[in-house]
Each structure stands twice: as C-alpha cells, then as structure tokens.
Amino acid sequence: MVLLNSSSCVKALDTVVITHYDITYSVITMSDPTLLVLASLAEGDKHGYAMMLDIETFAGVKLGPGTLYGAITRLEQQGWIRPVSSTDRRRPYTITPAGRGHLQTQLAGLQQVVKTGLSRLKHA
C-alpha cells in the first residue's frame, strides 16, 4: 500500500492545477495550427498538402505553407508526430502515441467547454 505524504499531495495537486490551466489555455487558442495538424493526422498518415486540404475541409482554416511547416517543426520537436520513411519528396507524417494522448487531453477540455457553453445557451 502506498501512502501519500503531504509534500507529494501538494505536488499532485499542483500537477492537476497546471493540467487544468493548460487545458483552459488550449481551449482559448483552439485555432492553434499544431492542434489542427494533430487532428488531421489522427485519421491517418498524410503529407503536407493532404494535411492542408483536410484541415480546410474539417475546420475551414486555410493554413499557409509557412504556418503548416512551423507547426510540423514544433510537433516533431515535442515528439508528437514523426516523419514516415518515403522516397517521395512529399514526406508523410504520422501521429505518435504521445501526440494522440496530447490531442485527447486537449479535445476533452474543449469538449467540456463546448458542452457547458451549449447547455448554458439552452437554459438562457
């Protein structure tokens, strides 16, 4: 049996608070291109142009090449996506398990806000 001492309790609480803060922050910046790229890759591997078309279809956001590759660079740095080996110049990317987990957390937070907002609108 593991007993939590007071300092680890505080640490755990701190983590919860910070996670909650991160979710809230992501919700505010839900047009963040990294989130859009992750959502696009959640469906399957895609190269840059395929991602651009997909994002435009499901989010109505037309990402420029500079913005898209800025997001790809950041996501690869974080280890949330990785390139798939290919002989084509159009290199596809795949979402990693860590990236999937991150996307899930972000979307859960977003869903909570959407749910709350819609219910409040209904009762208003």
């Binding site: 840059g48 651009m52 090449p65 790809i72 660079t73 159009r90």
Partner: peptide
C-alpha cells in the same frame, strides 16, 4: 531538413 518537402508543397499549392 524540410526544404524539399516545402518545395514539393509549393509545387502543389
């Protein structure tokens, strides 16, 4: 690292 990919993307867009 990304130059070829971006070039290919520009060819498409």
């Amino acid at each position: 690292r990304y130059g070829d990919e971006l070039d290919a993307l520009l060819a498409d867009t």
